[in-house]
Simulated assay, not measured.
Amino acid sequence: MFDAILFDLDGTLVDTESLAMSAGMAAFARLGFPVSEQFMHGLVGRDMATAGRMIASAHPALDQTALHPMWNQGFLAEVNRGLPLKPGATELLAARLRPMAIVTSSRRAEAHHKLGVAGIADAFHHVVVVEDVEAPKPAPDPYLLAAQKLRVDPARCLVFEDSETGAEAAFRAGCRVVQVPDVVPSEGRWAHHLARDLLEGARMAGLAV
């Protein structure tokens, strides 16, 4: 039914979104611009450039050259303490059902660091990062590139995503989309299957795990 399985990374396979949110909120507050969880939810799944524009629109006086290093330092400190996998990730990756790739809005060094800390780097044939495309998620380009690298038709790819931004990208690429919401609830507008965890989503899509 599928020739490849493509995964978002943060919030889908590894439990980083809550760490990023708490580190981000702390950084905003230290600079005198406290933000709400709702504001942080709007940044989930966005690449850094897009997130930067959203932050500038909401807080034009905020010095982002101070914000991002502070935010990143706090986040990496949490990641380096250990990076747990999302429920069902271990079983789904161990099954090796199809060739697999990561499709993430993270930068290359950050993505590979997280994969290494989580101990899952060897499961994937390719890792597509934000530097690899001109148009990041929600554009379809990252998923189209992953399918190209795996030499498969995007329509024959099953995608696991947590965010609206990522699900839209995969849907627009023509992939089959399983969405497992993380910190931000979803009604699954861009998903073919809306699941509580990865294993439930896999079974909904017809994979025997």
Rank of each mutant, 00 (worst) to 15 (best):
A155L: 10
H68D: 11
A123Y: 13
S57E: 14
A58Q: 14
S186I: 11
L198M: 11
E17N: 11
L67Q: 05
E17I: 15
L93A: 13
G166P: 03
L145M: 13
A139G: 09
E161C: 13
F171H: 14
R156S: 13
I55F: 01
A94E: 00
E131C: 02
Q73N: 13
E168T: 12
L43Q: 07
M70N: 14
G206F: 02
A51N: 06
I102M: 03
W71Y: 13
G82M: 02
R203N: 10
H192R: 13
Q64G: 08
V127C: 08
V79A: 01
F160E: 02
E91T: 15
D122I: 03
K114C: 14
H192D: 13
H68G: 03
L13V: 09
A170G: 05
Q38V: 12
V117W: 10
E187N: 15
V35L: 02
M21L: 10
D15V: 01
V130K: 10
A167M: 11
A49L: 06
G11W: 03
S57M: 03
W71A: 10
Y143A: 06
E110P: 02
G119E: 05
Q148G: 09
Q38R: 15
L144Y: 01
V129H: 04
L115R: 03
P138I: 12
A170D: 05
F28G: 14
F33D: 00
I5M: 05
L93Y: 03
F75A: 12
S105K: 07
F2L: 10
T12F: 02
G206D: 06
V127F: 00
F33M: 06
T65M: 12
L19N: 03
A155D: 00
A111R: 06
D63P: 08
G166N: 06
D3N: 10
M1A: 12
L62P: 01
A208Q: 13
R203I: 06
E161D: 12
G116E: 04
W71C: 11
A118P: 14
L199Y: 02
L97D: 07
G119D: 06
V44R: 04
G206V: 05
F160G: 09
T65G: 11
D162C: 13
Q179E: 04
L76I: 10
E37A: 14
L158D: 15
R81S: 15
D3Q: 14
D15M: 04
K86G: 15
G52H: 00
Q148S: 13
E164D: 12
A95P: 08
G52K: 05
L145Y: 07
R30G: 00
P181Y: 04
V35F: 01
D10G: 08
A147F: 00
R46V: 04
E78L: 12
D197H: 09
L207T: 13
H125Y: 02
S106E: 04
A23Y: 02
N72D: 01
R203E: 06
A23V: 11
V130C: 01
Y143N: 07
S36I: 08
E91D: 10
H113A: 11
A170K: 05
P142R: 09
P138M: 02
H59R: 14
V35G: 02
A27E: 02
R189F: 03
A205S: 07
C175M: 05
G201H: 00
A123I: 01
R30F: 04
T16S: 09
R156H: 09
A58T: 15
D15F: 00
G201P: 00
E131Y: 03
L9V: 12
L9H: 07
R176Y: 09
I55L: 06
L43M: 13
